[in-house]
Write a protein that binds this DNA or RNA. Structure first.
Length: 591
RNA sequence: CGGGGCGUAGCUCAGCCUGGCUAGAGCGCUACGUUCGGGACGUAGAGGUCGCACGUUCAAAUCGUGUCGCCCCGACCA
């Protein structure tokens, strides 16, 4: 491909609004172009990267025995009504209406495809002999993000690989789940991504029923808890907290309770600012509605209640923050002043064990604009149940080895999930077993955000000059760069080398622009082609320069030997990313 | 949806506070010339409903109100 024949609108300056590396560099490299908030066009270079990621995903899925199909992005809304997900998705669901000769059909732009695939499978599968089945597609998904952000990392329209498996039993589900898990590891490592599989909220099946694949990155939106010692890793929503002893410090004097006016202070931050206290010294009381019954939940001011953990601890179906009227009734005060002492109604009090360590603490007084200070457990209030009801934070004990946990931001690129029968029940997807009995099909689902693979790579692999692509994802593997565009002999050689490399199976772009060398070099570095072949002074001695993007020095290679040698190196690198990973490790070590 | 910021040439921005000639710069673009190994230089050009609407005023990019769009923080996120 000749540069002059494609569209690569590189930019010297950072466009207004781009703040994180992947967004900045993908825009500057002319890979993407914003159409509106949360929607980006992929320009030729970006599209090539996306295509490479897609192909890697496809190859590994096929190897793992998955079968590709292609469903529709449009789907009748009625299908989502059957699974109650019009309500569940709410504003996230992109809806429309088709007008056909006077009749209106409500449709949705699919945010995922459980409904469609389950409906399909239930239509065509009726016997245990047809199961298990593992199907996937690569398609655009639509989710109306309330706040799209970070360029292509969080958009309302994105490319996703979604796979679904169908089973008669949990054993084959486990086996398929494992196969998908392994395939995901191969996919992300082939893409040069520093992925981390973590335990995730698992839904109906529980246990080891769900893993997310995370790319550690400061701009990730998820928090991953991990143990640097034993390797335990989980999403913060899922991470368990290891049990440790929590005792009140023995040598502290318990002061008498006092009620203080705290006008205008109804959040932890406001209370702490007002009373000059640290959040970890304050006890936060939240009134939850647990299957309709109000429950008070106590955690430290610096901790967050985890509703899933609370739900499991209380063996409840539905847990949500109580509404304002309930809080008023239970506490006798407006929202923001709840506390465990002097609740108007006797309700169950659940607490995180760490509050045992808090002495002379501050709590809401259950009166408007008032808080109590010097409150102490046992002396002033009691707790009905201690348990793990909060998100883990750095420093908590690892549930496996007990050593302190760490936290890191991460980008979610993949999710594998044992679904169970949620959708097959709702859509009545059944099969006849060997005994002639009707049974509900068991499902698993497995997603990869393909657009996020590309953005995640740019986010984790760049330097000041631009992106550093691994060969496997690079828009072009080699950039052939004649320094003197008006030297016919150099052009001829450049074209010959380009053709030779292309014939040897490499993706090559020939920078045939009539630009000064500096411009070409800067653009090549910005885009991040893994190899630049420069035809300059040394051409007189029959040599060209070969420079890998991550190396600082070029090597001279005989023109005649270039095609074979480079094609072989590219082929190897494409498969292993060995040079890419080694260079990256070196960069990280240098930091 | 709450808080903050920004909308002036294809891109990055100045001008606005304190209203007043034909609205500016750099980059990019076109033509010609000189250049040619890390974003060259000269000359001549093209390119603008100053986001949009209403209002105030003799006069609005500039002041006011409204509205639309974009970015960031927070809430939300199957």
């Amino acid at each position: 491909m000749k540069w002059s024949q494609t569209l690569i609108p590189t930019m010297k300056e950072t466009p207004n609004g781009a703040e994180i590396p992947s967004h900045i560099f993908m825009l500057r490299a002319g890979m993407i172009s914003q159409v509106m908030a949360g929607a980006y066009a992929y320009l030729p270079l970006g599209w090539r990267c996306l295509h490479k990621a897609t192909n890697i995903v496809r190859e590994e899925m096929n190897k793992a025995g998955a079968v590709e199909l292609f469903m529709t992005a449009l789907c009748p809304q009625s299908l989502y009504e059957q699974t109650n997900r019009v309500e569940a998705f709410g504003n996230v669901l992109v809806k429309s209406t088709l007008l056909r000769g006077g009749t209106k059909t409500p449709v949705v732009f699919c945010p995922t495809h459980e409904e469609e695939i389950t409906s399909l499978v239930s239509q065509y599968v009726s016997s245990y002999r047809q199961l298990p089945l593992l199907l996937y597609q690569i398609q655009t998904k639509f989710r109306n993000e309330e706040r799209p952000k970070f360029g292509v990392l969080r958009t309302s329209e994105f490319l996703m690989k979604d796979a679904y498996s169908f089973h008669t039993d949990l054993e084959t589900l486990d086996a398929t789940y494992r196969k998908m898990y392994d395939a995901y590891c191969k996919i992300f490592s082939r893409c040069g991504l520093p992925y981390l599989p973590v335990e995730a909220e698992s839904g109906p099946i529980g246990g080891d029923g769900s893993h997310e694949f995370m790319i550690p990155s400061p701009n990730g939106e998820d928090d991953v808890i991990y143990c640097p010692k034993c390797g335990y890793a989980a999403n913060v929503e899922k991470a368990e907290i290891g049990e440790t002893e929590h005792n009140r410090p023995a040598d502290v004097e318990l002061k008498p309770v006092a009620e203080l006016d705290t006008p205008g202070a109804h959040t932890i931050d406001q209370v702490c600012a007002f009373l000059k206290a640290k959040p970890r010294k304050v006890v936060k009381t939240l009134i939850y509605s647990v299957d309709g019954t109000p429950v008070a939940v106590l955690v430290r001011g610096d901790q967050d209640v985890n509703e899933n953990k609370l739900r499991r601890l209380l063996k409840a179906d539905k847990v949500e923050l109580a509404d304002d009227a309930t809080i008023q009734r239970v506490t006798g005060a407006p929202v923001g002043f709840a506390g465990p002492v002097g609740l108007k109604e006797k309700i169950k009090i659940v607490a995180d064990p760490t509050i045992k360590e808090v002495v002379n603490t501050i709590v809401g007084a259950n009166k408007a604009e008032k808080h109590l200070v010097n409150v102490n457990l046992d002396r002033d209030f009691t707790v009905d149940l201690f348990g793990d009801v909060r998100n883990a934070v750095a420093g908590d004990a690892c549930p496996r080895c007990g050593l302190p946990l760490s936290v890191e931001n991460a980008i979610e690129v993949g999710h594998v999930f044992k679904l169970g029968t949620k959708y097959t029940d709702a859509l009545n997807a059944k099969y006849l077993d060997e005994n002639g009995q009707l049974q509900t099909i068991i499902m698993g689902c497995y997603g990869i955000g393909v657009s996020r693979i590309v953005a995640g790579l740019a986010e984790t692999s760049h330097d000041d000059a631009g992106i550093i692509w691994p060969v496997a994802l690079a828009p072009y593997e080699v950039c052939v760069c004649p320094v003197k565009p008006n030297d016919p002999a150099a052009i001829e050689t450049a074209e010959k080398l380009t053709a030779g490399l292309e014939a040897a199976g490499c993706d090559v772009i020939l920078d045939d622009r009539d630009e000064r060398p500096g411009v070409k070099f800067k653009d090549a570095d910005l885009i991040g082609f893994p190899v630049r072949v420069t035809l300059g002074k040394s051409l007189a001695e029959g040599k060209v320069e070969v420079k890998w993007r991550w190396d600082s020095e070029a090597t001279l290679v005989d023109v005649d030997a270039l095609v074979d040698a480079l094609a072989a190196a590219i082929k190897e690198e494409r498969a292993t990313s060995a040079r890419f990973n080694a260079a990256k490790a070196k960069r990280n070590a240098a930091k």
